[in-house]
Design a protein around this nucleic acid. Structure first.
Length: 586
RNA sequence: GCCCCGGUAGCUCAGUCGGAUAGAGCAACGGCCUUCUAAGCCGUGGGUCGGGGGUUCGAAUCCCUCCCGGGGCGCCA
């Protein structure tokens, strides 16, 4: 429809060029958009305003010339000039009928497109350290990332969903030690738990599972373990040094093989938990990519060698530094520590190098906003490696702050005081959780009101939309009870009977859906879908209250049923993209 | 101090990359159920778009500056 109008305008412009009103030669961009206000018609063009300068005419005068040169079309009811020189198109009712048939015919596919042309895109999201269950902060990244991926797929990209598993590094060692200490406790050893350890109940569970499996086989005395370990913070020491000491002692006492066993048990238990949690949330991955594998495959060394060969590394204070300042970062970054260990950043360079080597045209990282300072250095590394940093899109998701009873819920993973994603899902349901998480733009701080999300009331937008879907289903059920039928073919023929204002606006809304999916996908803005669905549901509820669908007049009834079935379809499609169910009854 | 995000109705937020008289929901107030689910609908009130400059036909939107809130600035991950 929009394209049709753009063609009409183009023809008008061409005619004015021939007539010498407009300078020939340079092509003009046809500005055309949906009118914000329905009193301005359906589509509006600011063409006369943008062209007035080159034409050296007053905008309104130019608009009149353009309108006069506009070819006839049966889709256009009338054209008006308004305000400073806008050209407003009022479409004829007939222009909208087609959408009902299009929706019914396309079904689940309505709104999908081939825009992406099957080009490969990778979306990496959540990637939380496997040191504990996912909490509500991760939930936002999960819902957002999954929806962005689904949207891109809907518009024709070949999407690869990936979780980067941080299965190496100090945090994981702290987890392993935490598990081991709980295990020792179950063996009957009385070892003080480090203030820097992971204190959540799940660590007890893993310790217990280790004890069930190995009995006392891995037991060492508290005195052995604490030998030579600097004091913890409450005892006047440094908590970091204390926990590092414990890691070293645990390693030494257990030996590498047994230490690895404890470590991997912790890792696998938590990863299983995370996998299950996400799956129940409707979030699935194509790949769980191991950080450790980058070291083992030599990718980290290879990345470092490439940087070295390019002259981007230098040695200082015994460490190797990447000259990221040469690529716009604010300071240089260490990639190989004084002790010879590579940093997390080195792994990340290798990881992103690997992503691009896999041939993705676009790589999307969904990160928590607290990692924003990390973006310049990763892009710097890609540039230094000779890759194109603009292929990487980092989407920063702001924190979700949880409110319960009007009070902020404080959270800390280390202390084990947090609300898990699982708890949230059980409390408010998957549908409400998925919807609430993507209701806001990702760069917007989010106040997640638990009481609102779980309230089964009108305030809750997700129910409002689902109810519209259920209502259509209910009408269809009533059809039989009333001894009536629905003939879709007759309904299609009877569409011109749909002349009510409510019916017109519903059709206009339906026709916008594909544009919205496209915009939401390309701009990574799932909230557009959420808002659209709310408006569509509103249109439907209004229509429902104003007119009877199951009327005696068969032609009118069939046409109306076609329209509400199309509406149901679009609601189902939209909710599906958000990972929210479309219930048949409520 | 530097960097990122935000500041729009009492509250939570939209605002389609510069458009027309700035919009929803909730909350408040007033109406609508013998008719397809009232988890709904209709109506009313509510604004210095954080402040101040600038750019132009035109600014919530772009530029500069200041104020306020959140977050980040490790040889942690």
């Amino acid at each position: 429809m929009k394209q049709h109008l753009a063609e009409l305008l183009q023809q008008a412009v061409d005619r004015l060029k021939t007539d010498g009103v407009l300078p020939a030669g340079q092509p003009v961009e046809i500005g055309l958009e949906r009118a914000r206000d329905h009193r301005h018609g359906d589509f509006a063009s600011n063409l006369a305003l943008t062209l007035s300068k080159v034409a050296r005419r007053k905008p309104r005068e130019l608009a009149e010339a353009l309108v006069a040169a506009l070819p006839e079309s049966d889709q256009v009811d009338r054209v008006e000039i308004a305000g400073p020189g806008f050209i407003n198109f009022h479409l004829s009712p007939a222009a909208w009928y087609a959408v009902v048939g299009t929706v019914l015919e396309a079904g689940d596919a309505y709104g999908r497109s081939e825009l992406g042309g099957g080009r490969p895109v990778q979306v990496e999201f959540v990637s939380a350290n496997p040191t504990g269950p996912l909490h509500v902060g991760h939930g936002r990244g999960a819902a957002y990332g999954a929806t962005v991926a689904d949207l891109l797929e809907a518009v024709g990209y070949r999407v690869h969903r990936e979780y980067y598993v941080n299965d190496a590094g100090r945090q994981m060692d702290i987890l392993a030690v935490s598990v081991y200490l709980r295990y020792l406790d179950l063996c009957g050893e009385d070892v003080p738990f480090p203030s820097n350890g992971y204190q959540g109940d799940y660590v007890w569970d893993i310790g217990a599972s280790l004890h069930r499996r190995r009995g006392d086989a891995l037991r060492h005395t508290a005195a052995e373990l604490l030998e030579g370990v600097p004091p913890d913070e409450p005892a006047g020491g440094d908590k970091e040094a204390h926990v590092d000491g414990l890691i070293a002692r645990t390693r030494a006492l257990l030996g590498e093989a047994h230490y690895r066993e404890v470590f991997d048990l912790g890792l696998e238990s938590i990863l299983d938990n995370i996998r299950r949690d996400l799956e129940e949330f409707g979030v699935v991955y194509d790949e769980w990519f191991s950080e450790r594998s980058l070291t083992e495959s030599g990718a980290v060394d290879r990345a470092i060698e490439r940087l070295k060969a390019g002259g981007h590394l230098y040695e200082k204070d015994g460490a190797w530094w990447f000259r990221s300042t040469g690529f716009g970062d604010e300071k240089d970054r260490v990639v190989v520590r004084e002790n010879g260990q590579t940093t997390y950043f080195a792994s990340d360079i290798a990881y992103h190098m690997n992503k691009l080597e896999r041939g993705y045209e676009r790589v999307i990282d969904v990160w928590g906003a607290d990692h924003h300072g990390y973006v310049p250095r990763v892009k710097a590394a890609l540039e230094a490696l000779g890759d194109d940093p603009s292929k990487l899109d980092v989407l920063l998701v702001q924190f979700a702050i949880l409110y319960r009873g009007g009070q902020k819920v404080q959270m800390s993973t280390r202390s084990g005081e947090f609300v898990t994603l699982r708890e949230l899902r059980h409390e408010v349901g998957n549908d409400a959780a998925r919807f609430f998480y993507v209701m806001r733009k990702c760069e917007q701080h989010m106040d997640f009101d638990l009481d609102l999300a779980k309230s089964q009331s009108a305030d809750n937008p997700v129910y409002y939309i689902q109810y519209a879907h259920a209502r259509v289903m209910s009408v269809m059920r009533q059809l039989e009870e009333k001894g009536m039928t629905w003939d879709a073919a007759a309904g299609a023929a009877g569409l011109p009977r749909l002349t009510e204002k409510h019916e017109q606006s519903l059709m206009v809304r339906l026709s916008r859906y594909p544009e919205l999916v496209e915009a939401a996908a390309l701009n990574h803005e799932p909230h557009l879908i959420a808002h659209f669905l709310r408006e569509l549901a509103n249109d439907f509820h209004t229509y429902y209250n104003a007119h009877q669908f199951l009327v005696e007049d068969a032609e009118l009834r069939n046409a109306r049923l076609n329209l509400i079935q199309a509406t149901r379809q679009v609601i189902a499609n939209g909710l599906g993209l958000l990972g929210v169910s479309a219930p048949e009854r409520m």
